[in-house]
Design a binder for these strands. Structure first.
Length: 569
RNA sequence: CGGGGUGUAGCCCAGCGGUAGGGCGCCUGCUUUGGGAGCAGGAAGUCGGGAGUUCGAGUCUCCCCACCCCGACCA
């Protein structure tokens, strides 16, 4: 590709609205162009990179036994009503009517369609297992798109679905996909973590996310530096120090004027926060929920949502708390009835807690479960925090931010049962197909790669996903000797099957070309100039090399091949 | 949906009641050519939209819209 013919222009300065590195650099280098919030065009450079990622994904999915197909993004809403997911997705789903007034949606994912497809084609255990996949556009009307391609409303996703006759077979498919994912991310130059993840309301047992550690990530990953425990904070378990148990004492009312927070309460009474219980109020599917947890811990809303089997969970607003007859700041489960109560297991680790007295400015000392209060659900709903202890080995946990680039999970039989995708097993029994699903956000993977691989001058593309492998720069192109030598080099690279971008601009100064080359971040830069040409040489520089080297004009292709091969190891 | 911010030329921004500006980019010519060159000339604007106040509105008021950031949300 000749630079002078490229539609995209590089930006001289950072776009002011882009804050994360990938967003800033992808706009600046002309990889993408924004159309609306969370909606982007891929410009030729961005698309080339995206295609390279797609091809890596295809190779690995095919190698793992996947069959590529393509399902429509446009779907009848009715399909989603059958599984109850029209309601579950709610406003996140783009929907409209066709000309006949039939409700249609733009698909945010494809379990419904793929399950029906398999239902029509699979009758026997002999047809299983199957792994089907596609790379296709998904639509999700996200409440808040952000960070360029990290969270968008229209995006390309590789989604795969496995269909198995039994759990052991499902496990094989699951492991095959996990391995394919590791291969894909490694080949894309991304060091990812595989973390235990929440499987959601529909999911089955196992679920893992693949996350790239970056400052700007949306997810928090809890890791153990000692053993291999890695889990999304939404899912992570932790153990926290037991509070030394004392002999139970009887409940005692104390006046706590103006005390509204746990920190204030602990301070006022001279006890550690772990000797208090805090009350948090939620609304779950429109019903108020009273949550009790030890004062030094925080509620994990995902765990709480799962414990409640809730579809829609949020913190209660002040009026809702009041309407439920609760005293914010001095509430406890003591004497609370007629409202659903959930307590974290931590209320059993310790005793003689300070709790609210359900009267303004008043608390109780020495509250004990179950002597003084009861709960409807007792479960682990605590948020794992760095510094708490690993549930596997007891070492102190750490937390890192990450971007989720892939997610795999065992779906079980929800879709096959709901939509009637059954098969006959070897004994002639009709059984629902067991499913798994496996997703990779392709554009997000590109964004993550840029987020991870850049320096103060621009992108540093990993070789396998760089839009072009080589950047040929002609300096002083009005010099005929340079122009013809550079043209020849460009030609030679193409003939050698190397992806090459050729900066053939006559008017651009050397500095402009060098800065653009650094910004685009292609792996190898070749400079043709009068200075080098005098010695029949071409300058060679890897994007991360601090110094450039030279190579004879005759040996350029070989040198480039060597560098590309070396770095791909 | 709550909180904060921003909308003026392709890009970045100034102007805050009185003729629509600057830098970059773009076009023409000359000069220049190893880290974002110089000179001269030129093209380019529904000042996000609507209503209002005013003799007069990018500028003040109200309503709306879009975009960004934080949160909520994200099976």
């Amino acid at each position: 590709m000749r630079f002078s013919r490229m539609v995209s222009k590089t930006l001289r300065s950072d776009p002011p609205d882009a804050e994360t590195a990938s967003h800033r650099l992808m706009l600046r280098a002309g990889l993408i162009h924004q159309v609306a919030s969370g909606v982007y065009s891929y410009l030729p450079l961005g698309l080339r990179s995206l295609r390279k990622i797609e091809n890596i994904i295809r190779e690995e999915m095919d190698a793992a036994g996947g069959q590529e197909l393509r399902m429509p993004a446009l779907q009848p809403q009715e399909l989603w009503e059958q599984t109850g997911r029209r309601e579950a997705f709610g406003d996140n789903m783009f929907s409209f009517e066709d000309r006949r007034g039939r409700p249609m949606v733009l698909a945010p994912t494809h379990e419904e369609v793929v399950t029906n497809l398999v239902k029509a084609n699979v009758q026997s255990y002999r047809d299983l297992p199957l792994i089907l996949y596609q790379i296709q556009t998904k639509f999700r009307d996200e409440p808040r798109p952000r960070a360029g391609l990290v969270r968008v409303r229209e995006f390309d996703m590789k989604d795969a679905y496995s269909f198995n006759a039994d759990e052991a077979s499902l496990d094989e498919s699951y492991q095959a996909m996990a391995q394919a994912y590791r291969n894909i991310f490694r080949r894309c130059g991304l060091p990812v973590m595989m973390a235990e993840a929440d499987s959601g309301a529909i999911g089955g047992k196992d679920s893992h996310e693949f996350l790239l550690a970056t400052e700007t990530g949306e997810d928090t990953v809890i890791t153990c530096p000692s053993c291999s425990y890695t889990a999304n904070a939404e899912k992570a378990e932790s153990t926290y120090p037991e509070v030394p148990t004392e002999p139970d004492q009887s409940l005692e009312e104390v006046s706590t004027p103006g005390i509204k927070t746990i920190a204030g309460l602990a301070d006022f009474l001279g006890v550690p926060e772990s000797k208090t219980l805090k009350a948090v109020f939620y609304m779950s599917d429109g019903e108020p929920v009273f949550v009790t947890i030890r004062g030094d811990l925080d509620v994990n809303e995902v765990k709480l949502k799962n414990a409640l089997q809730s579809h829609d969970l949020r913190l209660a607003e002040d009026q809702e708390v009041k309407a439920a007859g609760l005293v914010a700041g001095s509430a406890s489960a003591i004497g609370i009835n007629g409202i659903k109560r959930v307590a974290d297991l931590s209320i059993t680790s310790g005793n003689n807690f300070v709790v609210g007295a359900n009267k303004p400015d008043t608390h109780f000392k020495y509250a004990n479960y179950p002597r003084d209060f009861d709960t409807d659900i007792l479960a682990d709903i605590a948020l794992a925090q760095p510094g708490q202890l690993c549930p596997r080995c007891g070492h102190a946990l750490e937390a890192t931010k990450g971007i989720e680039v892939g997610h795999i999970f065992k779906l079980g039989t929800f879709f096959s049962e709901t939509l009637g995708a059954m098969f006959l097993d070897s004994e002639g029994q009709q059984r629902p197909i067991i499913m798994g699903c496996y997703g990779i956000g392709v554009g997000r993977l590109l964004a993550a790669a840029v987020e991870k691989n850049n320096d103060e001058n621009g992108i540093v593309f990993p070789i396998p996903i760089a839009p072009y492998q080589v950047h040929v720069v002609g300096l002083n192109m009005s010099n005929e000797e340079v122009a013809s030598a550079a043209d020849r080099l460009y030609q030679e690279m193409q003939e050698a099957g190397i992806d090459v971008l050729y900066d053939d601009r006559e008017e651009a100064a050397a500095g402009v070309k060098f800065n653009d080359a650094d910004l685009l971040g292609l792996p190898v830069r070749l400079v043709v100039s009068p200075r080098n040409l005098k010695n029949a040489q071409v300058e060679v520089k890897g994007r991360t090399d601090s110094e450039a080297g030279s190579v004879s004009v005759d040996g350029v292709v070989e040198e480039v091949r060597r560098r590309l091969a070396e770095a791909t190891l």
